[in-house]
């Protein structure tokens, strides 16, 4: 670890962390795909209820998406507004 600037190390680890945070995208992907499949089945069975089914599907997708959005949010913070760098600098200042 000699010769590596602490700030560079924090930036590199934050980039890896941002990538890892987006693993949260797997869950909503599977969930939304499953919901869309079920909605297709429902429309095939009852085509006259299509509008109601699509509205319910969109609502369910929006709720299922929440965890993925949280992961995205963490990644955005780590990449564009990294709080760890400031913490490191304030630790150095002591």
């Amino acid at each position: 670890m000699e010769g590596i600037d602490g700030r560079a190390l924090i930036l590199a680890c934050s980039a890896i962390g941002a990538g890892l945070a987006l693993i949260a995208g797997i869950g909503p992907g599977i969930g939304q795909g499953y919901a869309a499949g079920k909605a297709t089945e429902a429309v095939a069975r009852q085509p006259e209820a299509q509008n109601e089914i699509i509205r319910t599907l969109l609502l369910g997708d929006a709720v299922a998406e929440t965890t993925g959005i949280y992961g995205l949010f963490i990644a955005i913070i780590l990449v564009f507004a990294n709080p760890l760098i400031n913490k490191y600098l304030s630790l150095l200042g002591q």
């Binding site: 929006a62 998406e65 929440t66 959005i69 949280y70 995205l72 949010f73 955005i76």
Partner: peptide
């Protein structure tokens, strides 16, 4: 929190 992050996250992801 979830209500606002959902909208914000989707739009910011689009912008980025």
């Amino acid at each position: 929190v979830s209500l606002s992050f959902r909208l914000f996250g989707n739009i910011v992801a689009g912008v980025i």
